[in-house]
Design a binder for these strands. Structure first.
Lengths: 189, 189
DNA sequence: TAGGATATAGACAGATCTGTATAGTTCGTC
DNA sequence: GACGAACTATACAGATCTGTCTATATCCTA
């Protein structure tokens, strides 16, 4: 299942989809940059859409793993970790391969309600929300789901703003807003 | 400048770009649905990108005008109007031609830093932020720009979440969060 | 009624797109 | 060394893409 060539195709496709978009990235370019024959791709994936789904599944794993690891390393308490999310986002925004969220961008291009690609993006956001909600609950929020939803809105908003404005300031803006929301959502000890 | 055919092309293109995306919408389809000859399009616009820019400029005007009008009709005080923004967003999310923000989607497809399309999206968001900041200042916010930035993050986040999840609940979530942020940003009278 | 601007239909160029077909090659394993 | 799986190279089909060209038609105005 996880052959080296398949892995390499997923990584190359992920890089190109991230930088240039999904429709704008042709199969031929992925093959050329990966140094792989066309039949190999179509032997591993039934179609370009299947490749996109494989890329998104991989991205979901790596993104959430890296985020959780970085957050846990950056802060010790659940409350501080909620805020540390935005510091990690800021680091991401400043990296040179930041081109917005691959799931938001995928949903922009494949936004039909019955699209499997949009559904994959939806699932990614659901898993991310679960993580935030877990932190919110551990932090003692009265309504963890409500706080998590609000923090997620700030996260999505920061990602989109940073992308459109080519500016990483939204990470700090979102952090300040999150501080206020968290303070209001957690009873004073 | 503003001939009927040019207007009709912009409206038709806007509808198709909104529903299916920019790369996925071909010139030929726009022409077929508009009932206009190809040379007429290329007589009015130098390229597809120019047409996209014209669509975005038009969308910027109509969107902000409609938003401001609806907000002013929905509430009387600046503070209530800040919150009414999210009610108007909710109405938008529930409409059947909601496919996310055309500017966010455009930036997802044309995200290069030097892209004129991304720059047009950036300008739209800047103008929208100015309006929110005006409301924040009139509402008595200590730091209107900071409050406006935070409210904008909630707006962007709500739009993206509603699109990805096919759910209009983010409008209410964002409104609740905005209430908390506004309360914290405006000194008690 | 003549002229000029604007629109039309439709062919066309040249590139690119996804996906398939075919024939040959590499390479590990028995 | 032989077998079989995986991979390569390349051509191809058929569609679609943006943009151009030409020749004709419409329509307003002078």
């Amino acid at each position: 299942m996880a052959t080296p060539r398949r892995e390499h195709l997923i990584e190359t496709a992920a890089r190109l989809f991230n930088a240039h978009g999904y429709h704008a990235t042709g199969i031929d370019r992925i093959l050329a940059e990966a140094g792989v024959a066309k039949m190999t791709l179509y032997n591993h994936f039934r179609s370009k859409d299947e490749l996109i789904l494989a890329v998104l599944r991989r991205r979901d794993e790596t993104f959430r793993n890296r985020l959780m690891r970085a957050v846990e390393q950056a802060a010790d308490t659940p409350r501080e970790r909620l805020l540390a999310i935005f510091d990690v986002l800021g680091d991401w925004f400043r990296s040179k391969d930041f081109h917005g969220c691959m799931f938001i961008n995928a949903s922009a291009e494949y936004g039909a309600p019955d699209s499997a690609i949009r559904a994959a993006s939806c699932e990614h956001k659901r898993l991310l929300t679960s993580y935030v909600e877990e932190l919110a609950r551990d932090a003692g929020a009265v309504e963890p789901a409500v706080l998590a939803g609000a923090v997620m809105l700030l996260i999505e908003g920061a990602i989109v703003s940073a992308q459109i404005n080519c500016d990483c300031a939204p990470a700090d803006q979102a952090k300040r807003a999150a501080e206020t929301l968290i303070a209001a959502a957690i009873p004073a000890s």
